[in-house]
Design a protein around this nucleic acid. Structure first.
Length: 627
RNA sequence: GCCGGUGUAGCUCAGUUGGUAGAGCAGCUGAUUUGUAAUCAGCAGGUCGGGGGUCCGAGUCCCUUCACCGGCUCCA
């Protein structure tokens, strides 16, 4: 809530005070006339003031930013002579980059954290002061802080440079900050890592210390607990425990899919194929190895060479495809096309290989061989908007099936792009209109498109709030030109078609990784590698169990029997840990009555019912892809 | 690729100042025929990531290499 200041010389402190003890205690910074500012900054009559707490994004940022200053102060105390780089607040905490001859060890972190706590306890006030740019440069030169000097030199000539001071520590900073270090009640340094100065590998590698901070110990512990929980659903851990896939030293970045992982993958593909057929796509498959000449024509040799693998066949150079489009284009070019054939939608689950940096590999999320759920659409310019609408609707329907929330971004023309202004404008407008028509909220990323055309990205949010870019829709003016694609128009003449590249899931491998974490390995029945586990109590149930398994198999369900000589409690425990959606228990009573006892993974014992009733329930869940 | 960390049985981990590898779970064998999240007993399982070095002696120390983990960068 905003308040109007009545007279000059008041501060946000006074405003907070007027609002009561609770607010005063929680106040971190203020929003003054739409800009974040310290609580102690003098106000003028007529200013609009809003007090920000940890609940507000700006409040959190200031809180963590002050924490990062405390970190820098502590590091200078523990290791004098360390040069300061930058130290911003980030989503769940903060970091600070240092240039230090000796790297920081985990033991150093403990010492630094202790020093930070000492600074917090001292509860030093923060002060802000300003000076002109030239003076500021000299000031930081005198303090022997070359990175700060560089930062100031990048600011405009006429800029007034602000600094913040707490105790004997001074840092270049736009602010705002908390009134005193004592506000940062709970903090923890989480890790050290290398980071390049300004993110460029051409620059020196600095030492980055990450940490997080909260206003209370409880909130910090809560945060650490959430991290622990996220670890429990890490797809690499679950992938091993559920026996879905593995990775081996013999093929770094090349995942191996196990039987259960393949069932999951095949279910995803089956649904994908079905919905694509339904929306008028034709599936194709193109070779993995194609001649280098093709990649030169497509432009990949120029732009993407470093990420491509190649091989030699009969003395000629061939490349292993990093993308599916050139192959797909050869299919298009294989025949003449009439305007009557358009739009033409070719879909391909295409296996691509890309040489990613060894340090970037990460489970199924970042690999060197993956299957894109690709499609290339060819159309006339006036079909563009409708085609894009179709793709957006397809994306939405598929994501909703899996229970993902998602956000959409439209990226416009970047600086060094190819193609005419008119084409770019028309294409960008077509994307925008399509989004508006579908009623899809979206954000614009100015200048973030590909060099060959504008794009729409879909960012999925999984059940623990992580976001993943999966779907993309890209308009391409380049490929149709480079490959001289044509269709015969109504006028009998050749025309250039418009091409759209799109993926929905992005990569099958990564999507499976995302799904594992999204469902924490407890897949809904339609996706579960094993849908039903039939557990016998004694060997008297074996025949009945096998008979039930046969019935389920005939009904296209995935069932397994557990006939081992173990107690039923033990079998349930194992089935539960395997996250099988349904268990059927067969004992003497069920044999006698011709019924089954059903247990649900989620709800426990569901009681006794006829097999037919259970099959009907399961069929319905599979048919509707219930979650 | 770069910075830091880790690498011991299928999995999770122990292993004193260098003295010649150990537990639980999983596996196998046997007993037990069991009613909704762990029955008991026994057995087997490791050139301590690979290579090289120091030493009378290396899982422990050094060098090198590979993979993995956390970041940087990039992106599906």
């Amino acid at each position: 809530m905003a308040f109007l200041v009545e007279k000059d010389g008041m501060t946000s402190f006074d405003v907070a005070e007027a609002l009561g003890q609770d607010i005063k205690k929680q106040a971190l910074v203020a929003n003054v006339n739409g800009e974040a500012a310290e609580l102690w900054r003098p106000l003028k009559a007529g200013d609009s003031v809003e007090i920000l707490t940890f609940e507000d994004e700006e409040g959190r940022r200031a809180f963590r930013h002050t924490a990062s200053h405390i970190l820098a102060q502590a590091v200078l105390a523990v290791r004098p002579g360390t040069k300061l780089a930058i130290g911003p607040a980030i989503d769940n905490g903060f970091y600070y980059d240092f240039d230090s001859d000796e790297p920081f060890s985990p033991a150093d972190l403990e010492v630094i954290e202790k020093e930070m706590q000492r600074i917090v306890k001292k509860n030093d006030r923060l002060e802000r002061f300003e000076m002109p740019r030239a003076e500021a440069i000299q000031y930081m030169k005198d303090r022997n802080e070359p990175y700060k000097v560089e930062l100031i030199q990048d600011l405009p000539e006429d800029a007034v440079i602000s600094f913040y001071k707490q105790g004997d520590f001074v840092d270049l900073c736009a602010g705002p900050h908390l009134p005193s270090t004592g506000k940062v009640k709970a903090l923890k340094l989480t890790q050290v890592a290398g980071a390049y100065w300004r993110g460029s590998e051409k620059n020196k590698m600095l030492q980055r210390i990450y940490g997080t901070a909260y206003p209370t110990k409880e909130a910090l512990e809560d945060h650490l607990r959430r991290i622990e929980e996220a670890k429990q659903r890490d797809h690499r851990k679950l992938g091993r425990e559920l026996d879905l896939f593995s990775l081996h030293e013999e093929g770094p970045g090349f995942p191996f899919f196990h039987p259960k992982g393949m069932v999951l993958r095949n279910q995803i593909e089956e649904y994908w194929r079905r919905i694509h057929r339904e929306r008028g796509y034709h599936e194709i498959r193109t070779p993995i190895i194609l001649s280098q000449a093709l990649w030169e024509q497509s432009g990949h040799m120029g732009h993407y060479r470093d990420n491509m693998y190649s091989t030699i066949i009969d003395d000629a150079v061939y490349a292993i495809k990093p993308m599916n489009c050139p192959g797909g284009i050869l299919v298009y070019k294989n025949a003449m096309h009439s305007y009557r054939d358009l739009p033409l939608r070719y879909a391909e689950l295409g296996l691509v290989h890309r040489h990613e940096l060894s340090g970037a590999l990460h489970g199924l999320m970042r690999v060197r061989a993956f299957t894109q759920d690709d499609a290339h659409l060819y159309m006339t310019m006036d079909q563009v908007q409708e085609e894009i609408i179709g793709v957006i609707q397809l994306d939405r329907d598929i994501y909703e099936t899996y229970g993902f929330k998602f956000t959409v971004e439209l990226s416009t023309r970047p600086e060094n792009s190819m193609g005419s202004d008119e084409d770019w404008e028309a294409a960008t407008e077509a994307l925008r209109q399509a989004l508006l028509t579908v009623g899809m909220p979206f954000k614009i990323n100015e200048g973030d498109g590909a060099f060959y055309g504008p794009k729409i990205d879909f960012h999925l949010e999984d059940s623990i709030g992580h976001t993943w870019q999966c779907g993309t829709i890209q308009l391409d003016f380049q490929m149709p030109e480079r490959f001289e694609l044509t269709y015969i128009g109504q006028d009998g003449k050749e025309h250039r078609p418009v091409m759209i590249h799109r993926t929905v899931l992005g990569s099958m491998e990564r999507f499976i990784g995302i799904l594992i974490e999204h469902f924490a390995g407890a897949f809904p029945p339609w996706l579960s590698p094993v849908q039903v586990k039939i557990l016998t109590i004694t060997e008297r149930g074996d025949a009945r169990a096998k008979q039930i398994a046969k019935t389920l198999f005939d009904g296209d369900f995935r069932a397994e029997c557990d006939l081992r000589n173990e107690k039923v409690g033990f079998k349930i425990r194992e089935a539960q840990m395997e996250k099988v959606p349904y268990m059927i228990v067969i004992g003497d009573k069920e044999i006698e009555n011709g019924t089954i006892a059903v247990r649900s993974r989620k709800e426990g014992d569901l009681g006794v019912m006829p097999l037919e009733a259970f099959i009907e329930k399961l069929s319905e869940e599979v048919r509707t892809r219930a979650r």
